[in-house]
Design a binder for these strands. Structure first.
Lengths: 125, 125
DNA sequence: ACTACTATATCGTCCGTCGATATATCGTAG
DNA sequence: CTACGATATATCGACGGACGATATAGTAGT
């Protein structure tokens, strides 16, 4: 068993961009440009990561070991040598989950303040 | 009536600090120090606003007319002249509501990515 | 009077965002 | 086969917000 893991909550809150990048990597490995497209698609164009934000964030995520570069080519049919693929590390998964729990708490607090109509909450059922 | 209101979504995402300040002012008028205490209490000590963040944010919120200073003393029994009370403007209310909707969307996305266990979502029922 | 708490305010540093810019490859229509 | 738009990665600098440190002073209780 490894060293005592640092509490993932100590890394919160995440920035908008970083959380969307982690979300994009939650279900599968992706390369930078693919992350950009997935975020744009998933948020219906509301969130657009520019290259500065995207690659700057990836650099920091690698340094902090929230993500790892994958050496395998997920799809051998596509052989674009430029692509660099990334996956979530165990730490990254724990931080993403902690952030998800944090925003659920936020929704509860907003509801207690009557900031959300009941229908909006009902959709979460 | 009135001029065409700017879409409140254009101000999103809010920073952690700003959203907590708006949440604190949603149910009643408060003074700066009171906002600090309410946020600390509501988040069970997880979010602590330092003076730099608090008063810097208040200044910007006033400039952007998200909040207004109130001249009335909410509790005449307490007469601390130092206190400056604030309330949400109509714009502030609309922005806070838009941000609340945004984070509900985020919870949905996190759930689709299986980042949240079903129980965590069930609590929102 | 002393002390802890209340209350507001500013300053400088640090860090992330984001558009601009650069470079190069891929796929395809002409 | 070549020109073009999309794909793909990367760096830079300006800007703005977060936050701890610091300052100042009034309030309340002992």
């Amino acid at each position: 068993m490894g060293v005592a893991a640092k509490d993932p909550e100590s890394y919160l809150p995440l920035t908008e961009s970083v959380f969307h990048i982690l979300l994009a990597l939650t279900d599968k490995e992706r390369h930078g440009y693919g992350i950009m497209q997935e975020v744009k698609r998933r948020t219906k164009g509301k969130v657009k990561l520019g290259p500065g934000t995207l690659y700057g964030s990836i650099k920091r995520l690698l340094e902090g070991k929230w993500i790892e570069e994958s050496t395998e080519r997920p799809d051998p049919a596509i052989n674009d040598e430029r692509r660099r693929y990334y996956r979530l590390s165990e730490l990254g998964k724990r931080i993403a989950a902690a952030e998800a729990r944090r925003i659920v708490d936020l929704v509860h607090q907003a509801r207690e303040k009557k900031l959300l109509p009941d229908e909006a909450v009902g959709k979460l059922v």
